[in-house]
Amino acid sequence: MLELRLVQGSLLKKVLEAIKDLVNDANFDCSSSGFSLQAMDSSHVALVALLLRAEGFEHYRCDRNTSMGMNLGNMSKMLKCAGNDDIITIKGDDGSDTVTFMFESPTQDKIADFEMKLMDIDSEHLGIPEAEYQAIVTMPSSEFARICKDLASIGDTVVISVTKEGVKFSTRGDIGTANIVLRQNTTVDKPEDATVIEMNEPVSLTFALRYMNSFTKATSLSNTVKISLSSELPVVVEYKIAEMGYVRFYLAPKIEE
């Protein structure tokens, strides 16, 4: 028996919009600690890791560890039927091949049940160890989205370089080149507008912009994004979900030809 009641149902709607284009099918894992997911894109180049902690739900009941295979496109279709202010409850029974999403309007005058078929998914779980990163950049998520979108109109890849001067996003394509440098800026009115660069040593890595742009679909989940860089490791692009957890995207760097 599983029953997870999320008052801020819009969070789940946003999570699905953030990940459904990157991953088609995924197993949602439910345990006493929370509701989570780890899945790779079909080419196994990028990975999404989601955590919604149990404490973030108004009511959280998960009698035993459960894995529910869902088609994210279908799940998104169902969640789009929930209002932005709706309370969403995820319900499942042991051994059942369906999951139910219940949507309640804030005034409780409309209650909807959507039952979705589950699927068997052979997913490969990767062990992701804690790592030291050479540089961690925290910046407004909207600025990161803007940069990725702008650069994708010029080139296919972005070189992200962190030095003590700042963080540089560069691309080149048939029509020319582009460089965008952000300097650390903590003298802002609102903390979420700050750009903070923590650098242990300079680092420069190349990534496919197609994936970076896909990650920015999570922009509405958080005002800030944290980009952790290390040579020898996939980049981590993390959007914190207030009070609840995170969506993290991992992307393997391209090797210079």
């Binding site: 790779m40 080419s43 196994h44 180049v45 990028a46 990975l47 490969e124 779980h125 990767l126 062990g127 992701i128 160890p129 496919a208 020898e232 490791l233 996939p234 991992y250 393997a252 760097p253 391209k254 090797i255 210079e256 030809e257």
Partner: peptide, 14 residues
């Protein structure tokens, strides 16, 4: 695009 490694080059399967 053969200069794009997969994640399995960095992380091990559990």
């Amino acid at each position: 695009a053969n200069n794009q490694p997969k994640l399995s080059a960095f992380f091990t399967l559990k």
